[in-house]
Amino acid sequence: MLYEADSLTKVFKGRQVLNLEHLALEKHKIYALVGPNGAGKTTLLNILAFLDQPTLGKLSFCDTEVKYELQHLLAVRRRVVLVDQYPILFTGSVRKNVEFGLKVRGVSRNLRERRVDEVLELVQMRDFLLADAHKLSGGESKRIAMARALAIEPEVLLCDEPTANVDVENQKIILNILAQINSEQKTSIIMSTHYLSQSRNLAHHTLMLDHGKLAMTE
C-alpha cells in the first residue's frame, strides 16, 4: 500500500480541519481529491508530502509507519514531491529552476543536462530552456514547476489544483502530462481539483472531502 492512515486528525488554531477514520491509497494509481474550499484537501496533501504533521493518528508510507523525526522525514521526502497551486519559481532561467533538485542531490552536470532536456520535452517547453522563469505565463509556470518536480523522478507526485487559473490549452497539456507519467513511468499521483470532470476522465479513484472528513470514494 502506498499510503495508509488510521484515525488521522489535524487541528489548526483550535479547529479540526481534517478527521479521517481510515484512508488507503494504492501504488501506481491516480487519485483525485475533490471538495469545496476548506474541505481539507491542501491539508491532506501537505501531510502526504511529509511537510506537515497530523495532530493525532497513524500514517504509513509504503507499509512503513512514518516517524516524525528529522532523519526519517528527510528520507521519505526524497521520494515524494508536492507541486503547489501557486508554485514559486526562482530568479533566473528555466534551466536553473528545473535542475535545482538535481544539483541538491549532487547529480553530475552531464546527467543534469540530459534530465532537464527530458522533462522539458515532456512538458512541451524545451524551447524555453534559457527563458527568464519570471516572465512565463501562469500555465507555463505550472508546467515548469511540474518539470522541476519530475526531474528528480519521484515515486509520488502530489499536485494542489494543477489546472486552476490557467487557460484551456495549458489545462489539457497538464492533464496529458499526468496521464503520461502515470502510464509510462508508473508514478503515483494524488491531485486536488474542483473539477469533477477531470477526476472522472483522469483519475482511477475519486475521494470527496467535506469539512475534513471523507464523504465519498469511487
Score class of each variant (00 low, 15 high):
Asp117Pro: 01
Val107Lys: 08
Leu70Gly: 01
Asn19Arg: 12
Thr163Glu: 05
Asp210Thr: 03
Leu175Ala: 01
Tyr86Asn: 15
Leu209Pro: 03
Met1Thr: 07
His211Gln: 13
Ser192Pro: 09
Asn37Ala: 11
Glu155Val: 02
Asp160Arg: 10
Phe128Ser: 13
Ala32His: 03
Leu48Phe: 09
Asp117Phe: 04
Ile174Glu: 02
Glu26Thr: 10
Tyr195Phe: 14
Ala131Cys: 06
Pro87Cys: 01
Ile88Tyr: 11
Arg109Asn: 12
His28Ala: 14
Gly106Thr: 02
Gln85Ile: 03
Leu2Gly: 04
Leu82Arg: 07
Leu48Gly: 08
Ala5Trp: 08
Val123Thr: 07
Ser60Asp: 06
Asp127Tyr: 12
Gly35Leu: 03
Asn182Trp: 03
Glu169Ser: 11
Ala39Leu: 02
Pro154His: 07
Ser93Lys: 06
Val94Gln: 00
Met191Ala: 10
Ser93Trp: 05
Glu161Gly: 03
Ala203Glu: 09
Gln124Trp: 00
Asp52Leu: 14
Asn201Ile: 06
Ala215Arg: 13
Leu214Pro: 03
Ile47Trp: 10
Arg126Asn: 09
Leu56Gln: 12
His194Ile: 10
Ile152Glu: 03
Arg200Leu: 14
Ala32Glu: 07
Glu161His: 00
Glu140Gln: 15
Ile152Ser: 08
Ala75Trp: 11
Val107His: 11
Thr187Ser: 02
Val80Arg: 05
Phe100Leu: 15
Leu196Glu: 03
Asn37Asp: 13
Gly139Ile: 04
Glu4Val: 05
Gln16Lys: 13
Ala49Trp: 02
Lys213Phe: 08
Leu175Cys: 02
Gln124His: 10
Leu70His: 11
Thr9Pro: 01
Thr43Leu: 09
Gly35Arg: 02
Phe90Ala: 14
Val76Cys: 08
Ile181Thr: 05
Gly92Ile: 08
Gly212Cys: 01
Arg78Asp: 11
Asn165Tyr: 10
Gly38Arg: 00
Thr187Leu: 06
Val98Asp: 05
Ser183Lys: 14
Glu184Asp: 14
Leu120Thr: 11
Phe100Ser: 12
His134Lys: 15
Ser183Tyr: 11
Lys13Val: 10
Leu33Asp: 11
Thr43Gln: 08
Gly40Trp: 05
Tyr195Val: 14
Ala131Val: 00
Lys10Gly: 04
Ile181Val: 15
Leu20Asn: 05
Leu56His: 12
Leu48Ala: 08
